[in-house]
Design a protein around this nucleic acid. Structure first.
Length: 256
DNA sequence: ATGGTAGAAACTCTA
């Protein structure tokens, strides 16, 4: 199974890139974030024509997450159960014996802001829920935009970013508590190039200057981590005209 | 020096 995650920053705008990318990489499952559309305007027919089923948890203008799959998925939930959230940030589904979760963690805006508090509370709810999910589903994959760079090597300039949003210690601790539920960061299961990032600001030519962060992650349960054969960041779509500010991350799983 | 760009939507917010 090839499973991927991509923050597309508007599915409507990025649909041509997504369709080209699906044809080029042929993933079996794709977690999307920031679809920025309501369910009524989700391009299900275009994706179906490309060979993909889709489940969407949409929202007007902001957020929105989806799971695309070649096999028919069975929806598990939209949102974190028992966590009231007006924002569409989680969808989970069962696909070919794997429970797949697409997550869009709150950005947090700036350290100490109201949105930062919401981000930390959101992470806490995610960790509590995933503990119960992992207990019930040995094949569990949680992919998405976590809006936290786990370590300094995931940051182009750790000194410049020190203490800032995406990097602050409370955010990293919150992410560690999610990982400590029992996941592996799939990217770090393998030797990787230095300065591997998944997001670059649109401004100041950040992508060209390799000024990025690795904030899009694939967290795998022990069973799936043992089956993981590769995890790579695909820079090609970020080089196109009018790209998403995020690159897709792709994992290959050897499932029996 | 607090800039710059992009998306959605509606003259501003979010990232």
């Amino acid at each position: 199974m090839k499973i991927a995650t991509w923050n597309v920053n508007s599915l409507r705008v990025r649909l041509p890139h997504l369709l080209d990318w699906l044809a080029a990489r042929a993933p079996d499952v794709v977690c999307l974030q920031e679809t920025k559309c309501e369910d009524a305007t989700f391009p299900a027919a275009e994706l179906r024509s490309a060979g993909y089923c889709a489940l969407h948890h949409g929202q007007r203008s902001y957020n929105g997450v989806a799971i695309l799959s070649r096999s028919e998925p069975r929806v598990a939930c939209r949102g974190i159960p028992a966590f009231a959230d007006e924002q569409s940030r989680v969808i989970a589904a069962d696909v070919d014996g794997v429970r797949v979760v697409s997550v869009y963690v709150p950005n947090g805006q700036s350290v100490g802001s109201d949105k930062y508090g919401y981000k930390l509370r959101w992470f806490e709810a995610l960790a509590a829920w995933l503990a119960t999910e992992l207990a019930a589903h040995p094949n569990l994959a949680v992919l998405g935009d976590f809006n936290v760079a786990p370590e300094d090597r995931d940051v182009h300039d750790p000194l410049a970013w020190e203490g800032k949003i995406h990097v602050s210690e409370p955010e990293r601790e919150a992410l560690r508590r999610v990982v400590a539920v029992g996941f592996a960061d799939a990217f770090r299961l393998f030797e990787q190039p230095e300065k591997s990032f998944t997001w670059w600001d649109y401004r100041m030519g950040a992508f060209r200057r390799k000024m990025g962060l690795r904030i899009d992650l694939a967290l795998l349960s022990p069973a799936l981590a043992g089956a993981c054969r590769s995890c790579t960041i695909d820079l090609a779509p970020r080089k196109l005209e009018r790209p998403s500010d995020h690159a897709p991350v792709l994992c290959e799983l050897a499932l029996g």
